[in-house]
Design a binder for these strands. Structure first.
Lengths: 141, 141
DNA sequence: TATTGTTATACTCTATAACTATA
DNA sequence: TATAGTTATAGAGTATAACAATA
């Protein structure tokens, strides 16, 4: 293998792991009639109260897309819109009690589904894996 | 931490890595006007020729969904439908030369984007990471 | 002028149900 | 009868462009 070429074994494993993980999230969400995006909205709002634009930025979506997503979630009683203090153009999005409870249940369920897989690794390997993934996740220099 | 509880650090890292990886795939696909699903279709067909139902199974989608996906990809000249030998109900899907070329370029581009990240790890760690991910990917017992 | 969010519009993705053709 | 694929339909997700209100 020359320097110009790339051994894609690790990249392939990362991509396949990503798809497998997304499939789990998709399935868990579907059990609660939530799309992957709605699942992410709940996850983001779990520990934050953010404005529409911030939500769109987190998700990598357009503001206009957020309007529809938040509309539907609000209609289901999972979150609420409220005028932002200090800037009367802005809108804060907050989980409702029902939404917060659902978000907790979803997180627990995801952990329950994935835990048997991570448990295949020794505790030491689990720690190594976690720290290696953390290093991959660091924003690009 | 009791035995009933779960340390979600590793699960969180897996999920975050999955989202980061999907974001890369999404971006690469978008540069070529391809959705994530269309990207996957090309990737699957890269080394296989499969029937509509098999494609739907790989992707976890309904057959009727495949019809539309293949319709649009076929209209763009990326793949072709052909009657399956042996079963006149079945339809084989095959990459066109243009589709095959695009699939290769996409794979190379994904590797190019992800490689700088994996390169943060020592070669030894890269090997460890790959084998640990492979263990996670093994189908459930 | 620039920013925040919504509306209008169009297209893709997706599932369910009903259908045709073949097995 | 069962399976492979399509069609019809409906709803969610998404982006672009134009807009109103506020900064």
């Amino acid at each position: 293998m020359t320097a110009e070429q790339t051994d894609d074994g690790l990249v392939d494993a990362l991509v396949q792991t990503a798809f497998a993980t997304m499939a789990v999230l998709n399935r868990v969400g579907a059990e609660h009639d939530l799309s992957l995006t709605q699942l992410r909205v709940l996850a983001i709002l779990r520990d934050r109260q953010v404005r529409m634009t911030a939500l769109a930025d987190f998700l990598g979506l357009e503001k206009s897309t957020m309007t529809g997503l938040v509309d539907r979630a609000e209609k289901r009683g999972l979150l609420t819109r409220s005028p932002s203090e200090g800037d009367r153009r802005a809108v804060d999005v907050t989980l409702s009690p029902a939404g917060a409870e659902l978000a907790e249940r979803l997180a627990a369920q995801v952990a329950r589904v994935l835990a048997p897989r991570t448990a295949r690794l020794s505790p030491a390997d689990q720690g190594r894996l976690q720290s290696m993934l953390a290093r991959l996740l660091t924003p690009a220099t």
